[in-house]
């Protein structure tokens, strides 16, 4: 029987959650025994090659491309997990949500004290995805099945969650893995 597939993506995140995935250390060998990695920055596969059992999402949606990727994940994954603060609640990127988009861009590219931009243009290359009016947590865009808290969630928590999902068992996260003080 073919191994189930696992896909991951980092949307409006800092890749910290992916670092935490890698932090499972040598258990990654065990993980490779259990699953095949599909679309993921870990193996650099860009497009889905088939249906996946689990999709791990880091980061919320700050631009149209994030939305596109997230929708592809929803279409291709049985179980979708919001991993970490940004995917779950928007996190640091969502700090811009109270400021109109135009003001954010003006501050970043025109008016900021350290800006050097003689052209006075806000980057507008068609290759650059358009920003959304605000940063959305993933569950406001697609249905999310599970949420894994943390910034980032500890490797042990990610491991426990993925293992439980693969074995179809309830996720038992001990207190130490979900306390952050």
């Amino acid at each position: 029987m073919a191994k189930p597939k696992l896909a991951t993506a980092s949307l409006a995140g800092c890749f910290g959650c992916h670092m935490s995935i890698l932090d499972i250390d040598e258990r990654i060998l065990q993980l490779v025994e259990l699953v095949d990695f599909d679309k993921s920055p870990v193996d650099d596969i860009k497009e889905f090659t088939g249906r996946c059992r689990i999709g791990l999402i880091e980061g919320g949606c700050c631009n149209e491309e994030n939305v596109h990727v997230l929708k592809k994940f929803r279409e291709n994954c049985d179980i979708l997990v919001s991993v970490g603060e940004c995917a779950t609640m928007g996190g640091i990127p969502a700090l811009r949500n109270t400021i109109p988009l135009k003001e954010c861009l003006d501050e970043a590219f025109l008016n900021g004290p350290t800006v050097h931009n003689p052209s006075g243009r806000i980057p507008d290359d068609p290759e650059i995805p358009l920003l959304l009016n605000k940063v959305y947590p993933c569950h406001e865009v697609v249905k999310i099945d599970y949420f894994l808290p943390g910034c980032p969630p500890p490797a042990d928590a990610i491991w426990a969650a993925v293992a439980a999902l693969l074995e179809d068992k309830p996720i038992a996260l001990p207190y130490e893995l979900i306390k952050y003080d």
Binding site: E64, K102, I122, D124, L130, L132, N133, K134, Y136
Partner: peptide, 11 residues
């Protein structure tokens, strides 16, 4: 959600 950005980037 992209309306603002469309106006700013004029595309």
């Amino acid at each position: 959600a992209v309306k603002d950005a469309e106006n700013i980037a004029a595309r």
